[in-house]
Design a protein around this nucleic acid. Structure first.
Lengths: 234, 234
DNA sequence: TCCAAAAATTAGGTAAGCCTAAATATTAAG
DNA sequence: CTTAATATTTAGGCTTACCTAATTTTTGGA
């Protein structure tokens, strides 16, 4: 990687593109994600699209997309990040809300050797503590399109697969509610008008949880086959 | 730490001062250690002695010494470095010749939390894989003044305490000879005119080793009480 | 279609850290 | 004690990665 800054741009472009079906990323969006001024982004995009190797395709006033080389670099950083998060959590006992910040700095400086050793020590895990998939060394990973908790029908059972968030406060809140990957639950009800979502955590006492819609959309799940249909009251 | 570069200057000044009884460090010496031009060093020394907090005392044409604040920062980095080396070696199975390079980058980015967790995971070790002492969080550590292997008298037995080197080739060479910290040996002879040093590794088969004087001076030892006096031939 | 708001770019600046070349200080040797 | 060699600093430049302010382009509504 040319520099830490360049890596951060590539990661940001990758992540934004991922959320918007590979559409070009706007200057403003990137600036917001990176916390820098738009003018700085314009400058960097020019550099990235001019340099050798070309890391992004950039069309002024239109947007930026990663080239294959840029995608490769972004995924390598993401692999580093998620392996480090996993390692900090599993080997060093970090709580899941603290791993992101540490990984954010470490991801830029670890060697290929360290990457390999971390992966090996963890048994080559497929996901990090938040359920985010860890790309392999070639940048491949299973692309899932899990529905979010808010998409479930009332009475449906599901397992938490992934929590799309890194804010420590939110993560601590969810951990406090027992809503972490691999936990199973049954959706009780989704209030209308984007109201709160009520669910029952299987095997927890007490089991009922009520969370806001916004948060429910950040929890990705895998519906379970054995759906128990509750008698509907109306 | 203000920046990675500043950290490297502080570490370098500390290490040079250590080797020359806290005497002021010259621009040229620092430049050589850091691999930068002398003019760059002059510029940085000005910054370091002007900034708040003041990290070095700098007298143009005379030299630089660390202030108490500079020493603190340098020792924190050194603590990071040695803890990381130890961890890489013990927990991740790195060979001792590979830990330095990785630690050199990681030392600048780990948090206080990670420092603590590494130390705890290792049981708060006193030395790193090369036998270098690890300062505690306050920057305190036992200052020893171990003699080097070349200082021993013929027939004297000793234990290797520390190997003052980070070049991978040299470290691999020594590991190949079985000359690593805590290994015990008996000095057979020190050839005159700075000639090679011959020794017998206790409990090794074959046990005889012959190393150059220069290398022998990088191996610090602790003489053992039970000295066996060989019959002197002349 | 025209025009104001929003988005993006250009222009001009800053700080960190490096560089080379030129100037100056110090030191050591005759 | 002078001078040549060596050490150090100053002067002037470069790149990266930011910034703010001004300008230009695009877009969406009346």
């Amino acid at each position: 990687m040319k520099s830490e800054s360049i890596g951060n741009y590539l990661k940001a472009i990758y992540q934004i593109q991922e959320r918007q079906n590979d559409q070009p990323v706007s200057t403003t969006r990137l600036a917001a994600q990176l916390g820098v001024a738009s003018a700085s982004v314009t400058g960097m995009l020019k550099r990235l699209s001019a340099g050798e190797p070309k890391l992004v395709d950039y069309e002024p006033y239109y947007g930026a997309t990663l080239t294959e080389a840029g995608r490769k670099s972004a995924l390598e950083l993401i692999r580093h990040h998620r392996l480090i998060e996993s390692y900090l959590n599993q080997a060093l006992g970090y709580p899941w809300d603290a791993v992101h910040a540490e990984a954010e700095r470490l991801e830029h400086v670890i060697s290929e050797e360290m990457e390999e050793r971390l992966a090996a020590a963890l048994g080559h895990p497929a996901t990090d503590p938040h359920g985010d998939p860890i790309p392999d060394r070639e940048g491949h990973f299973e692309k899932r399109d899990d529905p979010c908790l808010a998409d479930l029908a009332d009475g449906q059972r599901a397992e938490i697969r992934r929590v799309v968030a890194q804010e420590p406060e939110l993560l601590r809140y969810l951990a406090g509610l027992g809503l972490t990957p691999s936990v199973q639950f049954e959706l009780v009800s989704s209030a209308p008008f984007n109201g709160p979502v009520t669910l029952r955590v299987l095997g927890a006492q007490p089991s009922e949880r009520v969370i806001g819609r916004e948060i429910a959309e950040k929890i990705l799940v895998a519906p379970l086959h054995s759906t128990i249909t509750e008698p509907s009251h109306e």
